[in-house]
């Protein structure tokens, strides 16, 4: 499995990361080698095997649908990097800056 810089750049965008040119080079080589190793799984016959997403296969867990006390707004906002009295603040979402 060889990866191109372009592919890595696309994945970095999907992952909402920015890689420096050095990181991009390094990551292309390293991830390529790891994926090559992972191709080991191709030799396993998994025909008819059900995927196992969780070691303990749970049935759905339900609870009563009633309102419980949650964090006060002030407490919930306390760790926000940018906020006003009521809300988290972010840069403009629509349009140019």
């Amino acid at each position: 499995m060889t990866l191109t810089r372009q592919e890595i750049e696309k994945v970095a965008f999907l992952a909402r990361l920015i890689l420096t040119p050095e990181e991009l080079d390094e990551m292309t080589g390293q991830l390529g080698r790891v994926l090559e190793y992972m191709a080991l799984l191709n030799e396993v016959d998994t025909e008819g095997v059900e995927p196992l997403a969780h070691a303990v296969e749970f049935a759905n867990v339900f609870r009563e649908d009633h309102v419980e006390k949650s964090l006060d707004r002030e407490v919930a906002l306390a760790n926000a990097p940018h906020r006003d009295d009521e809300c988290y603040l972010v840069p403009a979402v629509l349009g140019d800056v």
Binding site: V11, L14, L17, M27, L35, V44, T46, E50, P51, L52
Partner: peptide, 28 residues
């Protein structure tokens, strides 16, 4: 970052079956 990249790749369109789903089967 490396692990986020690997995971994003394994879950991305076109690779999901070959990596993530395959791994879940071997997990069983």
């Amino acid at each position: 970052k490396r692990r986020i990249m690997l995971g994003t790749y394994a879950l991305s369109a076109g690779y999901y079956d070959a990596y993530y789903l395959k791994a879940l089967k071997v997990r069983r």
